[in-house]
Amino acid sequence: MTTFTRGFHGRRRGEDDRLPPGQYLAEDFPVLSAGPTPHVPLDRWEFTIDTEAGQTHRWTWQELTALPYEEPVVDIHCVTSWSKLGTTWRGVSLDVLFEDVESTADYALVYSYGGYTTNLPLDDLMDGKAWIAYRYDGEDLTPSHGGPARLLVPHLYFWKSAKWVHGIRLLTEDWPGFWETAGYHNYGDPWREQRYADD
């Protein structure tokens, strides 16, 4: 297990320094959802990586939770303007899941139980920047917050951290997801305030 803290770089920064432009500090954890909450039984849950060459890598719940995990402590930033600092998660790094995946794809389309999708460059999932998270604040991740497991990619606006994650499709061309096709920014960097398509 590895425990580390993101959001602190060298000396401890103040809360104001950790709030991207246009964000306010939330003490609670707002629940946002574009549809009904899926309830996926763990014995039927699976996570899949589909490569551009047609290969499929699958993990059952037991297999995923048996992998080495990390406990990232990260700041999260929702495009609706709330930020939450120092959130504690447990999850498997995408670096672990991609260890045996051969791909030259540049893009990833993340898909969820319930039909949600979101896209991002594959590089943004690698090198310790993203996890499949299944515990939050010391408890199993609740369905309202995306349980049993969600993507956690905290350096982008939180709509990219897909709840109820089911899999990742690797693509040679970018394929915009649910909010990215409806006016939201294709990349979504909170520090550059990339909220809407033209930002």
Partner: peptide
Amino acid sequence: VYDRAPGLVAR
């Protein structure tokens, strides 16, 4: 209508 989201989603 799911309105607790970045937009309105009518299902």
